[in-house]
């Protein structure tokens, strides 16, 4: 469902998620898998927590400190992946990373995440736009290995 989003709309979406990040809370429920992502080159420190049951992402949470780009991209990711099967989640993740790296991608599954399509204009920020997504990928891959 392609619709053309103006730059102004994209800015607003990023600022909205930066100002009011979704699913930003910490749980000590041991059923959740936790991944800590930090970076040598920047000061982002982001934890991703996911509850996976029967190959479904029942819940996706995050907490930590980050810039507007890492905060908004992680927030949008949690909304997008919550309730998806691990297979669907992996597909969405792949499309997102393809978009970030300027490869052909299926935008029909990315919803608000397409606001990051211009990230490659600031190559130094690709790590910010992907830090949460890379964390999620670790959880998904770890999940595969366990079986």
């Amino acid at each position: 469902m392609r619709f053309s989003m103006t730059n102004e709309m994209m800015r607003e979406i990023i600022m909205d998620h930066y100002g009011n990040p979704r699913n930003k809370k910490e749980t000590d429920n041991s059923e959740y898998q936790t991944i800590f992502m930090d970076s040598v080159s920047c000061i982002d420190k982001i934890y991703i927590q996911a509850l996976v049951k029967n190959d479904v992402l029942i819940d996706v949470l995050w907490h930590g400190v980050g810039c507007a780009i890492s905060t908004a991209s992680t927030s949008i990711m949690t909304e997008l992946l919550k309730g998806k099967t691990t297979k669907q989640a992996q597909y969405i993740l792949d499309q997102y990373l393809k978009m970030i790296h300027e490869e052909p991608f299926d935008e029909s599954v990315l919803d608000e995440a397409i606001v990051f399509m211009n990230t490659s204009r600031q190559p130094a920020r690709i790590k910010c736009a992907t830090i949460g997504w890379n964390g999620m990928e670790k959880i998904l891959n770890g999940n595969k290995k366990d079986r």
Binding site: I43, D44, C67, A68, I69, Q122, A124, R125, C128
Partner: peptide
């Protein structure tokens, strides 16, 4: 956030 400012200055 400082790093957002950094990209802005880069631009």
């Amino acid at each position: 956030f400082s790093q957002d400012a950094g990209s802005y200055f880069n631009s």
